[in-house]
Simulated scan of single mutants.
Amino acid sequence: MSSSSGPLNEELQCSICLDVFTDPVTTPCGHNFCRTCLNNCWTNTQTCCCPFCKESFSRRPDFKINTSLREVVQHFKKKLKRGRSEVFCDFCDGRKQKAVKSCLTCPSSYCETHLEPHHRVPRLKKHKLINVVENLEDYICQKHERPLELFCRDDQTCVCLSCTEGDHRTHNTVPIEEESRQKKVRV
């Protein structure tokens, strides 16, 4: 599974192997890694330190599988496989090709050929591309028809930029990626 599978994949990615976690373990500083990756990193070394933040540990920590994170990763992998096999390009005529990306701005899913303008045309380069999803409407604000890019911590829900100018004006909102990172550290 490559690291180009979108933002969620990046949140579930080991910073050593750059792939989705396999048997994730958590260091005392709260960072997560694949068990094998961290074992390999600490083999033949006197001092153990976190590969991400470089915090040193007085002794080599015992590893326990982070079962909550492992379940999230397994769910993500299943959903990713299902989504990839069932989502087709919205623009193919005749025989539909499998979609490789979904655009929240358009909102449409594209095969490699029809996605090409999003990589070339300056205006389209600014669009929010995500990993292919089956229910694209779940990622778009139903009220404003804009991408859900923020998380409202007060209401514990995803919101679009327009929402922050209205009902969520005084609320604590952060980018979804930031909230996802925070929740991953807490897991």
Rank of each mutant, 00 (worst) to 15 (best):
N44W: 08
V185E: 00
K101I: 14
C92S: 01
E177I: 02
E10K: 10
E10V: 05
L129V: 09
F33N: 05
N44D: 01
S109Y: 12
K125D: 01
T173I: 08
H75T: 06
K78P: 02
L124Q: 06
C89H: 06
D155N: 10
L115H: 06
N135Q: 14
T67V: 09
C14T: 02
C89G: 07
R123G: 08
R82F: 12
C163E: 04
C49N: 14
V87N: 07
K126R: 01
H114E: 02
C41F: 11
W42D: 09
R35C: 12
K98H: 12
H75Q: 07
F21S: 01
R60I: 11
V185H: 01
G166V: 09
C160S: 11
T67Q: 15
V25I: 12
S180K: 02
D93G: 14
P107F: 14
L8T: 04
V87Y: 05
C160R: 07
L69A: 12
P28Y: 07
L8H: 08
H144R: 13
T113S: 14
C106T: 03
H114S: 06
S85A: 12
T170G: 02
V185S: 08
C103K: 13
N40P: 04
R35L: 15
N66A: 14
E55W: 00
R169Y: 06
V100G: 00
K183T: 00
C158K: 14
N39A: 08
S180H: 02
C141F: 03
N40H: 09
E134N: 10
V185Q: 00
K54W: 04
K96F: 09
I176M: 12
M1I: 11
P7F: 04
E149W: 00
F91V: 06
P107R: 15
I176V: 15
L69S: 12
L161Q: 13
F33C: 13
E11S: 05
S5C: 03
L124F: 09
E165M: 03
E179S: 03
T26R: 14
L150C: 05
C17G: 07
E11H: 05
I65T: 15
E86K: 13
F52E: 12
R59G: 05
T157R: 15
Q74K: 03
P147V: 13
N32P: 00
N9M: 01
S15W: 02
V121S: 00
K78W: 05
H75M: 12
R123E: 10
Q46L: 08
T26I: 03
C37H: 12
C103L: 07
R123Y: 10
S102Y: 11
P7Y: 05
L69I: 11
L8W: 08
E137Q: 14
L12R: 05
C53E: 02
P24Q: 01
C103E: 09
S162C: 08
F91I: 03
E178R: 07
C53T: 06
E149Q: 13
M1K: 06
Q74Y: 03
P147W: 11
C106A: 14
W42Q: 03
D93H: 13
I65S: 13
N135S: 13
S109F: 08
T113R: 15
A99N: 13
K96A: 15
P175F: 10
R60Y: 10
T27C: 10
T45D: 05
E112A: 13
T173E: 01
Q97K: 14
T26L: 05
